[in-house]
Write a protein that binds this DNA or RNA. Sequence first.
DNA 1: GTCTATATACAGATAGAC
DNA 2: GTCTATCTGTATATAGAC
Lengths: 213, 213
Amino acid sequence: MSDRSAAAALEPEPAEGGKAARILDAARRVFMADGYGEANMDAIAKAAGVSKATVYAHFSGKDQLFAAIIGQQCKLHSEALAVENFESMSPEAALNLIGRAFAEHVLSPQVLGLYRIVVAETARFPELGRTLYESGPLRALGRLAEYLQRLTDRGLLDVPEPHIAARQFFGMIRSDFYLRRLFGISDATVGISIEQMVDSSVQMFVRAYAKRD
Amino acid sequence: MSDRSAAAALEPEPAEGGKAARILDAARRVFMADGYGEANMDAIAKAAGVSKATVYAHFSGKDQLFAAIIGQQCKLHSEALAVENFESMSPEAALNLIGRAFAEHVLSPQVLGLYRIVVAETARFPELGRTLYESGPLRALGRLAEYLQRLTDRGLLDVPEPHIAARQFFGMIRSDFYLRRLFGISDATVGISIEQMVDSSVQMFVRAYAKRD
DNA sequence: GTCTATATACAGATAGAC
DNA sequence: GTCTATCTGTATATAGAC
């Protein structure tokens, strides 16, 4: 039965950093592999190379440990998708870069694992969903909306409602790749690549919001 | 501790139909409320108004019962989003109807609950994600792509790659409403309604894929 | 088929020695 | 702070009577 656990085979990681850091990292790996409900403190202690009592000496319980992990990951991922300077590029080229970076980030196994586990536990930890959403997608939306506003101000595009348009753009990029990957379905049966999807969506977006004369 | 269970207060439903059907329905409610890991057979038996042994007389175990529920729900929801006749309508009007029906369906609490629980358990039940995806989103995509192809054939739009365009359309409709709701975040802070999002996306879609002269 | 009562196992958390 | 050993609750699953 315990062999069904995806984290069952995790080796204790080599000693490095303090015990607290080791426990945090082990917990991250176990929670991501097994989910909150299936993860157990024995596995975390074993993966960290410490005893269970030591885990409890550093963290008051399973839920607090979980919340600590998610908060840590939110901070980590909010640093991603950093601002670049797109002002010297064509809108198409800039949106292509933005789209590809977005896709690469939100479809990565690390980020997907984080989302999957938080979605699963919204009932138990309602605040974590909000934290994750605000540290990730909401920031990306705000930045894209600002960029679209600047394009409009400069007369390069005509985007009357940048916040709606930003949602449309990222929505197209995610399309159903996101759902598929959340479900663990391979891209093989889609018929198109993510790069194709980004290219096509950028073209389509620019055509829809081209400046009219 | 057991009071934290969202299904703890579920009443036994009034006798109706056979025991097997009662158990299935009770299991559906408990699994949806608590998720697979937190749901327990005692709660299901209690909600069904039978003993735990009776549950096991009808279903071989928790996992098999869960799979039965999900399969049932997939069938149920695959009947939704039925085909209508859009041929006599303008593309805008038809896409508006399609978009609204899609949004209403995929953002409904029932469907979201189903998705949330399946996403959470992809590791344990990999085949359920595929079943759900194919019975829902994939069918909707296929039907929309067909419709877009017909519009192109009739010269009303110019959609060179209907399968990509269909993904773009539904992606825009979902946008981040989907993610927000999976996380249990209210729409209040979005600033726009789903209806606005659909209207805006239909306009934008039609402009991008308008026939060129 | 359906019940009550129970076997068995495992997980979260802690006691107490060092 | 860290360990070993253990307490305690609870969950899946079943035995055995009716």
